[in-house]
């Protein structure tokens, strides 16, 4: 019964968000978010808080598609006649991109791990929580560093700052 109520509220929430979006009415959209919060309560009662959060967020991701699909716009099919060309292989470009890939894949992974562990070690929490926080934070820190490297207007400066941060963290941890 509780699961049914939670599902109904989640469906209602997705509908209100859709109506709020379509009519540009913020009040309706806000009501949608309130319904979603309410659905979390019923998910929590029915399945516990851990499963409840997962089902609450997951079902919303699915339910919104009812409204997305219901109002899709069909455009007349057309094809672009593109010219077929052999693959433009540029050794220099491949080398540069490979080096860049390795930088993101390996160097930034190691730096983000060192930096995160060093930072979390400074926090006054027990070791097991530090480990858990590290496991969750490393991919996020890695993602931020990787993105920073790609969007920066000063790539070399960013690279050096990142490298210095990693070295400082390593010195703090190992020396």
């Amino acid at each position: 019964m509780m699961v049914f109520v939670a599902c109904t509220l989640c469906l209602l929430s997705s509908y209100l968000l859709f109506v709020g979006w379509k009519s540009h009415k913020h009040t309706v959209a806000t009501l949608g978010w309130v319904c979603l919060l309410a659905s979390f309560y019923f998910w929590h009662v029915a399945l516990g808080s851990e499963f409840g959060v997962l089902f609450g967020l997951g079902t919303l991701s699915v339910f919104v598609w009812i409204w997305i699909v219901s109002q899709y716009k069909w455009q007349k099919n057309s094809t672009l006649n593109k010219q077929s060309k052999p693959l433009a292989w540029n050794n220099q470009s491949v080398l540069r991109n490979t080096a860049w890939v390795l930088h993101h894949f390996i160097i930034l992974m190691v730096i983000s791990s060192l930096f995160t562990i060093a930072f979390i070690n400074l926090l006054p929490i027990e070791r097991t929580t530090q480990v858990a926080a590290g496991i969750i934070s490393i991919p996020i820190v890695w993602a931020i560093l990787s993105l920073w490297q790609l969007v920066t207007v000063k790539p070399w400066q960013t690279f050096i700052i990142t490298l210095l941060g990693g070295t400082a963290s390593a010195l703090y941890l190992f020396v």
Binding site: L17, F18, W21, K22, V64, W67, I68, V69, Q71, Y72, K73, W74, Q75, K76, N77, S78, T79, L80, L147, V151
Partner: peptide
Amino acid sequence: FLSHPRIIKDAFRLRRGGT
């Protein structure tokens, strides 16, 4: 997310067909 400035404007938009 950073590269998607129309995230709210397009929240329920779906165009099919075309190219």
